[in-house]
């Protein structure tokens, strides 16, 4: 038998703390595969966020630090600047990165910090029970937008890659989705380019991964992935938004 796919060594044996069908595990696996394939696992420091993936260091087997809510890009900056030989990435959710941590993210991007950001967007605050996030769709019901998000009261969904692509510091900015095998293969390609951007010291890199939250969306895992395709991707279209030609 020829092995086509195999769980990477960097993905630890410890069962994840995520709900059944939560795509965080898919994102973890993609990151783990690339760290192993690119021979980065032993030189990597991952800065973990506050949110559902707060225990991420149990699941991806690298050196790790746990940041305060939203501060991952600042902490990653401190690590990378004082130890440039390390491969430094953050793994953050949409509440962490796009709300409380937006300043740290934008300025790390503007400085062109040689760090890679994996930004998982599931449109709500999962861990705290499904509150409205900056990325929540208009009309979407959450525990703090019980009548649906309304633009006049709560503003519009925040598109982070589009924002960051407009500034000069980033070398690679993309959005992928975790809703289908095809999109997952594409997501891996994008993350590989983000990692390459750091390895070649080209600048800041970020990949947004559109994810689901079956528990708080009150859907089966399968229904939640269908919702990504039908409702989320029209608002958050996938693709590469900024590509330094050297990331290939």
């Amino acid at each position: 038998m020829k092995t086509l796919y195999k769980i990477p060594e960097a993905f630890t044996d410890r069962p994840t703390t995520y709900c059944p069908g939560c795509p965080h595990g898919i994102a973890h696996r993609l990151v783990s595969e690339l760290l192993d394939e690119m021979d980065l696992t032993k030189k990597t420091v991952i800065v973990w966020p506050v949110g559902c993936s707060v225990f991420g260091y149990y699941f991806i087997g690298t050196d790790a630090v746990e940041a305060a809510h939203g501060r991952a890009c600042a902490m990653a900056t401190g690590i990378k600047r004082s130890h440039p030989e390390s491969f430094v990435m953050t793994y953050q959710g949409d509440g962490d990165l796009a709300s409380i941590g937006i300043a740290e993210t934008v300025h790390a991007a503007a400085r062109g910090e040689r760090i890679s950001v994996i930004y998982v967007n599931n449109g709500n605050y999962g861990m705290t029970g499904g509150q409205m996030a900056p990325t929540t769709l208009l009309g979407q019901v959450t525990t703090t937008s019980p009548y649906g998000r309304e633009a006049l009261a709560n503003g519009f969904p925040l598109k982070v890659p589009e924002m960051l692509a407009a500034i000069d510091g980033p070398a690679y900015i993309a959005r992928a989705a975790l809703d289908s095998p095809k999109h997952i293969i594409q997501a891996k390609k994008f993350i590989k380019r983000a990692f390459t951007a750091q390895r070649k010291e080209l600048g800041f890199s970020l990949v947004e991964l559109i994810s689901s939250c079956p528990t708080n969306w009150k859907m089966t895992p399968e229904e939640a992935l269908k919702r990504i395709k039908n409702q989320v991707l029209p608002v958050f279209p996938i693709g590469e938004l900024k590509v330094d030609e050297e990331v290939e």
Binding site: Y5, I7, T16, Y18, G25, I184
Partner: peptide, 9 residues
């Protein structure tokens, strides 16, 4: 590819 839990080893 879709398994979130590394159960498909």
């Amino acid at each position: 590819l879709i398994c979130p839990d590394a159960a498909i080893v």
